[in-house]
Simulated scan of single mutants.
Amino acid sequence: MIAEYADALRAKTNRNGRPYAPRTIGAYKDAAIALHHWMTKETGACCAGTAPIWPLTAL
């Protein structure tokens, strides 16, 4: 899924009409991988009872 995202970025242009730079694609891919790991991790004993990074009430 993330590979397809990177391929889609290679096929598109940015808001300035130029192709995405390889470093930009790599950064977006790294962010997608980090988000995937964060969203699929299981809450372990080390994380139980800890406060969230941001206050949920602000959303």
Rank of each mutant, 00 (worst) to 15 (best):
7 D>T: 11
8 A>P: 01
8 A>D: 14
8 A>K: 11
9 L>S: 01
9 L>R: 04
9 L>F: 00
9 L>P: 02
9 L>M: 11
9 L>W: 01
9 L>I: 00
9 L>D: 02
10 R>T: 07
10 R>A: 13
10 R>N: 11
10 R>I: 03
11 A>T: 10
11 A>W: 07
11 A>Y: 07
12 K>R: 15
12 K>T: 14
13 T>C: 12
13 T>F: 08
13 T>P: 06
13 T>M: 10
14 N>R: 04
14 N>D: 14
14 N>V: 04
14 N>C: 03
14 N>I: 03
15 R>P: 00
15 R>E: 02
15 R>M: 01
16 N>L: 09
17 G>W: 07
17 G>Y: 07
17 G>C: 06
18 R>P: 01
18 R>F: 04
18 R>S: 06
19 P>G: 07
19 P>Y: 05
19 P>C: 05
19 P>T: 06
20 Y>M: 09
20 Y>F: 15
20 Y>L: 09
20 Y>I: 07
20 Y>S: 07
21 A>F: 01
21 A>Q: 05
21 A>V: 00
21 A>P: 01
21 A>E: 04
21 A>S: 03
22 P>D: 06
22 P>L: 05
22 P>W: 05
22 P>E: 06
22 P>T: 05
23 R>K: 08
23 R>N: 08
23 R>F: 04
23 R>A: 09
24 T>H: 08
24 T>S: 12
24 T>N: 06
24 T>Y: 09
24 T>L: 05
25 I>G: 02
25 I>T: 01
25 I>C: 02
25 I>S: 00
26 G>R: 10
26 G>M: 06
26 G>D: 10
26 G>E: 13
26 G>T: 05
26 G>C: 06
27 A>I: 06
27 A>M: 09
27 A>W: 07
27 A>V: 07
27 A>G: 06
27 A>R: 11
27 A>Y: 08
28 Y>Q: 11
28 Y>N: 09
28 Y>F: 11
29 K>I: 01
29 K>Q: 01
29 K>S: 01
29 K>C: 02
30 D>T: 10
31 A>G: 01
31 A>H: 02
32 A>Y: 03
33 I>W: 00
33 I>A: 00
34 A>S: 13
34 A>K: 13
34 A>L: 14
35 L>K: 12
35 L>W: 15
35 L>S: 13
35 L>V: 13
35 L>C: 12
36 H>M: 12
36 H>L: 13
36 H>C: 11
36 H>S: 12
36 H>T: 09
38 W>Q: 14
38 W>C: 11
38 W>L: 15
38 W>T: 12
38 W>E: 15
39 M>Y: 14
40 T>N: 15
40 T>K: 11
41 K>V: 15
41 K>E: 15
41 K>R: 15
42 E>A: 14
42 E>T: 14
42 E>C: 06
42 E>G: 14
43 T>R: 13
43 T>C: 09
44 G>Q: 05
44 G>D: 12
45 A>V: 08
45 A>P: 03
